[in-house]
Design a protein around this nucleic acid. Sequence first.
DNA 1: ACCGTAGTAGACTGAGTGGTCTATCGCAAG
DNA 2: CTTGCGATAGACCACTCAGTCTACTACGGT
Lengths: 193, 193
Amino acid sequence: MVRGPRERLVDSAIALMRRKGVAGTGIAELLEHSNTARRSIYMHFPGGKDELLTESTRAAGAAMTALIRDVTATDDPRESVAAFIDMWKGILVDSDYAAACPVVAAALGGSDAPSAPAAAAASFRDWDAAIAEQLVRVGIAAPVADSLATVTVCAIEGAVIVALCSRTVQPLDRVAVHLTELVSAAAPRLSRR
Amino acid sequence: MVRGPRERLVDSAIALMRRKGVAGTGIAELLEHSNTARRSIYMHFPGGKDELLTESTRAAGAAMTALIRDVTATDDPRESVAAFIDMWKGILVDSDYAAACPVVAAALGGSDAPSAPAAAAASFRDWDAAIAEQLVRVGIAAPVADSLATVTVCAIEGAVIVALCSRTVQPLDRVAVHLTELVSAAAPRLSRR
DNA sequence: ACCGTAGTAGACTGAGTGGTCTATCGCAAG
DNA sequence: CTTGCGATAGACCACTCAGTCTACTACGGT
């Protein structure tokens, strides 16, 4: 694995966006965190902070898309939901409720990184599509699957935020219960389990 | 209604948090937006930015709690959900997808306003309680009502974020459908409508 | 009419912002 | 060895940040 300045910058930007948001992520802090020369930012990202954070949003979104595709390889969406919720619980607890979703930060950081929200929106769409694909595979009609997938993403992202500031994973657990309920109701052939 | 500097500052802080987040809300911008003397901030909020934004979070949260209590006065939670979703759609469209939830901003702004997340968490709890109260009233068992209330808050907040960056109210519509579905399933005596 | 207080206006500070620039370093291809 | 280039180190820029300070004004209670 090549660990050039570009990769280090993107990784650090993702880590900082999780904890500080877009506006709160400063160049100086980013340089220190990634052990990179100041100039390297503008070599790889001529557009400066906006370009760097937007690219980092894309990278974080793509990584999550891959993870979703991996987790949804099963034929039971309820397992997938549980796996996701567990992953988020791990992130929150391990970071002592300091790290949230970098893509959410990007979605809300339009005033500091104007092109970041568009990258966030693209990621959300990818996640939707990946989740809907699994739901269709287990027999849910496409329009319902799309809708359920969107709700899954929204509910989990919302729960992460509420859980973060409340310093408890309870919102995630509650969301897991009801998302499972929705999936079971929509996919009759799963509901006997 | 008295419109002293304190009220103007809180109102402006809420408006700016919606659009710029906590870290992105600067004192200078706040002063200009609220037409207030610099000194007045530190007269009313000796703790500076942290205290001002935390207090503004409490105010925004309380206003929303009142609105929730108002909207949930009905005995049909499905109407209440629809009313909320409509309200958010209005905010997003009217602001041209620039204004989100100030309480979410506070929840994520811990690095710039350390005591804001706690105020956000308190608001989320109040909203949960207000929503759960209505659900219990229509015959849903308390534990289920609590859980459903949390999911309602999380899903809507998540949908606002996704809708904002996607520049479409579709996520909110989809969330409305499935929240209604969940409420109907949990409250049998409503489900014939 | 007087005083006390809240509010206004705006200068000022030190630290920090994102971004640019020059100079040097290390290394690989010719 | 030499040339070229990405990377590093760090000075430097104009600007903004949050917060402090002084001087002045407006007004309500006595």
